[in-house]
């Protein structure tokens, strides 16, 4: 199974992502610089974390209009799987591939700590390594992770099973205290309608080895290797 990681000026989690993908997929992903005009044929495209273009104007706004994103959008529309983490999630909302927006954290502080996440469903190409309701632990590190959408969009996301992961406590309860940034309905990650695009603020790629403090994110990568690899 082949993956590509898109690298922008200001990306900083691309190598973590590369190791996590390589570790589960058994194949080193292709690193694609944002100016490269031809994106190789791959089964999964990943937009990594960081501060693309220095978060100028709005987090993700500049990257969302870069030439390579037009190609990413076309591939996503054609059914290729796309994963955006942190800044990658911000870019996906700015392109319109995912609804809503990521606003400044409610307490205005950069938040960098481990959180617990509840996996809402296990029957997508991304989450086959989990059981529905599983609680995993992995880090967040962001200043603009406060998920906002209007009530109609939120209801649609919930009704269509498009909430991927929610901030929760260790038992899986989506409490206010467990919400690190003020996200509406504790939303940490969402899918598009076709379930082939996933955006999330937390960093599963930084929880794939005991030396990193845990293996909470590993089932996501193992699950994608099976779920997306089989479909490809």
């Amino acid at each position: 199974m082949r993956a590509a990681v898109i690298v922008f000026p200001g990306s900083n989690r691309e190598r973590d992502m590369r190791l996590a993908l390589g570790g589960s997929f058994g194949e080193d992903p292709v690193m694609v610089w944002h100016r490269d005009t031809d994106l190789p044929k791959v089964d999964l495209i990943v937009l990594p974390g960081g501060f693309s273009y220095g978060d100028y104007l709005r987090a993700g706004a500049m990257a969302a209009h870069s030439p390579v994103l037009r190609e990413v959008k076309a591939r996503a529309d054609a059914g290729v799987h796309v994963l955006g983490v942190c800044n990658g999630f911000q870019i996906l909302t700015e392109t319109g591939l995912l609804p809503g927006a990521l606003m400044r954290n409610a307490d205005l502080r950069f938040v960098c700590r481990d959180v617990h996440l509840k996996v809402e469903r296990a029957d997508t190409a991304f989450t086959g390594g989990f059981r529905a309701g599983d609680v995993l632990r992995c880090p967040v590190a962001h200043h603009d992770g406060n998920y906002f959408a209007d009530a109609g969009t939120l209801d649609a996301l919930e009704g269509e099973g498009r909430v991927a992961v929610r901030y929760c406590d260790e038992t899986g309860a989506p409490t206010v205290a467990a919400n690190p940034n003020g996200s509406q309905r504790n939303i940490a990650g969402i899918y598009n309608e076709r379930l082939n695009v996933l955006g999330m603020m937390p960093h599963p790629e930084d929880a794939v080895h005991p030396l990193l403090g845990g293996l909470g994110g590993k089932p996501l990568f193992d699950g994608m290797a099976a779920g997306i690899g089989d479909a490809a």
């Binding site: 706004a61 209009h65 927006a101 606003m103 906002f148």
Partner: peptide, 9 residues
Amino acid sequence: QKLLANTVI
């Protein structure tokens, strides 16, 4: 519409 504002918010 295309860049300067995010019309979601």
